[in-house]
Amino acid sequence: MSDKKPCKSPDNEVLSGESRREFLKKSTLLTAIALTPGVAVKAAEGQWDEKLAGVFEKMLLHVEVNGVKHSLMVEPRVTLLDLLREQLDLTGTKKGCDHGQCGACTVHVDGHRVNSCLTLGVMVNDKKITTIEGLAKGDQLHPMQEAFLKHDGFQCGYCTPGQIMSAVACIREGHANSEGEIREYMSGNICRCGAYPNIVNAIQEVKDGGQTV
C-alpha cells in the first residue's frame, strides 16, 4: 500500500455494532461537531449520525483501471472485486466464492494476478488494474482470448475471465513450460463445467505461438 494516506482511517480495533456507533459518536462525530456544531448536533438528534459517519468512513482512492484513471471515495471494507462490479460496472470480473478459493475474480494489479475478492479497494491506491474488459485492444482480441475461443476453453463462461487473466499471468511468470506446469499454476482457478483440458490446450498454444502476452 502507498504511504500516502488520502485521509485518516479508523484504528484497527475490532468494533461491534453498538460500540462502533459509540465510537463514531465520540470521535468522528465529535470532530464534526467541533467543525460545525449546530448542524451536526441537530443531525445527531435526527439519527443523521450514521449518514455523517458514512461520509467520514470513506477514503479517497486513486486507481487506474484498464487505462482509465478514477478518483473515488470508498469505504475501506470494500473489496476490489465489489468496487469493480458494483461501483465501476466492470462486471467481467466474477464473484465465485469471495474467499480467494476459486479464482473467478482474478485481475492484474500492476501486471500481477491477484484475487480481487481478497484485496481491499484501498490497497490498490495509485496502482494499475487490468480486468478482462481491458485485455483486448478494441475489437482485436488478446491471443489468449482467441485461443480460449478456438479450444473451447469454457462452457458457461463464468470462470472464464478469471481463467484468462490467470492464464496470461501464468505465461508472463514463466510457469507455462509444460502441461504439468500449466496445470499446477492454473489450479487456483476452478471451472465447474470442466473445461480444464481445453484451457491447458489454449494456454499451450499461446505459449508455443510466442506472441507477446
Binding site: 466492470l90 482470448q145 463462461g157
Partner: peptide
C-alpha cells in the same frame, strides 16, 4: 462451430444475473 456467445464470454461482456445495472 466455436461458441456463438464465446466472444462475449471471453471479453467479460456476457452479463449474468447479478450484473445488470
Amino acid at each position: 462451430l466455436s461458441r456463438v456467445d464465446g466472444r462475449l464470454k471471453v471479453t467479460g461482456k456476457a452479463k449474468y444475473s447479478a450484473e445488470y445495472d
